[in-house]
Design a binder for these strands. Structure first.
Length: 564
RNA sequence: GCGCCUGUAGCUCAGGGGAUAGAGCGACGGAUUCCUAAUCCGCAGGCCGCAGGUUCAAUUCCUGCCAGGCGCACCA
């Protein structure tokens, strides 16, 4: 597609003697295929040429040489519409996909650049709820998207492995804990203890005191406290990694909050040395009134550091460690102010790179019944969601494809894919309402729809036997074929736009469109039963669709089973 | 009160300043001697929250208002 685009830009910028960039910016895709593949609006030229846009379009269209890349170039109202040569487009696109295979869609835009992505960051003491799903899957897909564009992606899981909740957990464990149950099902059990602590603390406030005391002990290096902390952390991390494996998620670093403990004083000192900090109501703060923000707290009255202190510290450490060109924080929109404060303090400290730190916010998951609360135990476990989705997928498989061999694995791929896609397919900034019915709906705009399209293609390719390498893609000129080809050609475009806006939903939507275009095609056009040359060409086409579906799903962290 | 985000079909949502605003779900009606019907086709459904402004052109950008969500000092 780029070949065609470049040609138009060359022709027009030459003919009009205007900047290439100008032409490129104005060049657009018409709203429907009858209007061609590219359109150039002539409104802006009206003033310059003192003529009506329609007249200018007509004149230009006449002067433009059609060449072999284009079927025709014609004026339609104030637009010049370019119709790509169907034959040329089909040949170039199918050859590109089949030649580049898993590399198709990749671009070297970010070669030599590093992007650090901070995502997921579950709390050790708390279970992995559906709330953490968003950060995890959005971060993971951005990681892959930037990777596909040549960047070095660094995924950091800033684990919530420090804080007063550990005091609570230690108290709860020492009071009611049973060792076997902890070993058996660590996360669930720690969660039970956490909930029980809050229930009992309501009647017995002295528990809170005890918890604070235990956390103080932990900070002071008390051996028993340290041992328990280490144990809780290890057990939880093992569990988290198991869930990450199910979600196709991995990290380059698991350095969580505790990792920065020893560096916090240095960070606070650095801020103080710049004269940015002052005491207020006994707490150490950085005043941000000029920036229109409430102050950023570095130390509490009792001298303990806070969330912001850790994030400042972590940012400075990461800049030294990775020399990133950009750092993304995939964290809920409710923390927007916090990040604005942290970034501003970094700037005040003279860290110019602070402008390359971005908060990538996402909307919250809401419940019909109201808010979910970890403390009250009304949390929905991510794993329950994944299990139910997998179970349902298995049920449908047994119904529709009873002879399928690896049912359990495919059910997992489909069920989990549906959950991931449900989260990624909509604009991340919007709140989403958690709805079991919706998350367990496998028809329409869902991952199973895309996966099913992929499986159908695999099935056709299997039935056809081996695909001939000598095919004539130039035969693929029908409307249904061309729509599919145009979608294939737009893949890179979707990846680039997703990276520019940090919205994986753009890739997700692209895949829905491609799958839909394919489905329309195959309901209309026989493949295996087509006449020999056409059959070879169509097999090549659907193989290309298969490849792009796989590549695209990979960017979202979703598997593409060959049968389902 | 101040700040950030969101308002598009009955519901859930797409929409890269440009041509006739699109999908899915749900409703209704169809398609399987043929490559897996988790599919496809048809039909219905819209003051794009409201009012101004910028522009040749605004669902899209800016301002104000209304509605909802989320933040706003010792949690993360």
């Amino acid at each position: 597609m780029q070949t065609f685009r470049d040609e138009i830009i060359n022709l027009l910028s030459g003919l009009l003697s205007v900047d290439r960039q100008q032409v490129e910016d104005d060049l657009e895709t018409p709203p429907n295929p009858e209007l061609g593949d590219f359109a150039f609006p002539c409104f802006k030229l009206a003033k310059q040429f003192k003529n009506s846009p329609a007249k200018i379009a007509t004149d230009l269209a006449e002067k433009l040489p059609v060449g072999e890349l284009f079927e025709r170039v014609e004026a339609r109202g104030p637009y010049i519409n370019f119709f790509c040569s169907r034959k040329k487009l089909a040949e170039l696109t199918v050859a590109a996909v089949l030649g580049e295979e898993s590399r198709y869609g990749r671009l070297p835009l970010g070669d030599g650049k590093t992007v650090v992505i901070d995502f997921s960051a579950p709390n050790i003491a708390k279970p992995f709820g559906v709330g953490h799903l968003r950060s995890t899957v959005i971060g993971n897909s951005l990681y892959r998207i930037f990777n596909a564009l040549g960047y070095r992606s660094v995924g950091i899981n800033h684990l919530g492995d420090w804080g007063t909740q550990f005091g609570k957990l230690i108290v709860a464990y020492l009071t009611w804990g049973e060792d076997e149950r902890l070993e058996e099902n660590p996360i669930t059990y720690l969660y039970e203890l956490y909930v029980r602590f809050h229930r009992e603390a309501e009647a017995n406030p002295s528990l809170e005191e005890e918890a604070r005391a235990w956390f103080k002990k932990l900070e002071d290096g008390d051996r028993q406290a340290q041992k328990l902390w280490q144990r809780f952390r290890d057990l939880s991390l093992t569990e988290f990694k198991r869930i990450y494996a199910i979600l196709n998620v991995s990290f380059d670093s698991y350095q969580g909050e505790s990792f920065y403990n020893e560096m916090l004083d240095d960070t606070v000192n650095a801020v103080e040395e710049q004269g940015l900090a002052r005491l207020s109501e006994g707490a150490l703060i950085v005043e941000l009134e000029q920036e229109g923000m409430p102050p950023c707290l570095l130390r509490k009255q009792d001298g303990a550091t806070l969330y912001a202190t850790r994030d400042l510290c972590a940012a400075i450490y990461r800049q030294q460690m990775y020399q990133f060109d950009r750092m993304l924080y995939v964290v809920g929109a409710d923390q927007a102010l916090h990040f604005q404060q942290v970034f501003t303090v970094l700037k005040k400290m003279g860290h110019g790179w602070a402008q390359n730190c971005l908060h990538i916010p996402f909307g919250l998951i809401r419940f019909k019944e109201g808010k979910m609360s970890t403390r009250q135990g009304t949390l929905v476990f991510l794993e329950d969601v994944l299990d139910r989705a997998t179970e349902l997928a298995g049920q449908i498989i047994r119904e529709k494809n009873p002879s399928l061999e690896n049912k359990a694995e495919v059910a997992r791929q489909v069920g989990v894919g549906a959950v991931i896609f449900g989260d990624l397919s909509n604009d991340r900034v919007k709140d989403i309402e958690f709805d079991w019915e919706k998350i367990l709906d496998f028809s329409g705009e869902t991952a199973p729809y895309i996966q099913y399209s992929h499986a159908r293609i695999c099935s056709i390719l299997r039935k056809a036997g081996s695909r001939s390498d000598s095919f004539d893609a130039g035969l693929l000129v029908s409307e249904e074929e061309q729509v599919v080809i145009r979608s294939l050609a737009r893949f890179s475009d979707a990846i680039v736009r997703a990276s520019e806006t940090y919205k994986s939903s753009i890739v997700a939507r692209y895949l829905i469109d491609l799958a839909r275009d394919f489905n329309k095609f195959y309901h209309q056009c026989p493949v295996i039963q087509a006449e020999e040359n056409m059959r070879d060409a169509r097999l090549a086409l659907i193989d290309a669709v298969r490849q792009v579906l796989v590549n695209g799903l990979w960017l979202l962290g979703i598997d593409a089973p060959k049968e389902m």
